[in-house]
Amino acid sequence: MKIVVTVKLVPDPNAEKHIDPATKRLVRTGVETVLNPYDEYALEAALQLKERAGGDTTVTVFAMSPESLKEILRKALAMGADEAVLLSDAGLEGSDVWATSYAMAHALKKIGFDLLVVGGLTDDGSTGAVPGALAEQLGLPCITNARKADIADGKLHVERETDTGYQTVTAPLPALLTTALTFGEPRYASLKGIMGAKKKTISTLTLADLALDAPVGESGSKTELVAFAPPPVRGKGRIETPEDGAAGAKLIFDFLKEKKLV
């Protein structure tokens, strides 16, 4: 069985991020790039499924990203992925959900898979819409927010989180699965994993390999960022250190009264 995991390379989630007024894209300089945290959970799920399936099951990670960030994929290889494929082309810059899913779908078709594991969200774009769009582009059943998954009799059995609780769902393979964080904490790369990752292959695809029928990148996108601004500043808040609980309670109570909240 071949499992492919999509990973996006994103600016450090804990860093302050800004948009460049000239290009209207995220400023990446001076900010470390990392694997999108949500995709580490997806990778963890794929590695668990591989371990349980045994045999000749493999895990491939796939990223669509500038070539300069290629080496960041070593971390995924060190965690246990077998190989990596990067789709990289200047023509992809500025792609929105539609263009991203369209280009990714073509690359993923070329790579081939039985199961596609996708993160639930990106820390930078945060649309959460790419998985659904990808599933449609690839004609796959789409099972999102999995906290447990198993493969039996060629079918995927999933327990998934919903807005109000959870569901169990069954679907035939090939399928697209996204993971909730409750699937399990991503593993750390072992020293052996890190050493081994140096010998694993990261291959590259470009748009020329995909023969797309429609434009991608900024011109092929269906949305356009036209303006951005920082949010209105909140007045600096008060910090109070009362002498005891009752005084603390009184402070809050008076504040709420003043704001007409009680």
Partner: peptide
Amino acid sequence: LSGRDVAGRLVARLGAGVAAD
């Protein structure tokens, strides 16, 4: 959660752009 799924699926079905959140 499910709204995002529906939105993603319709992006591809309708060739549409999506603005999130």
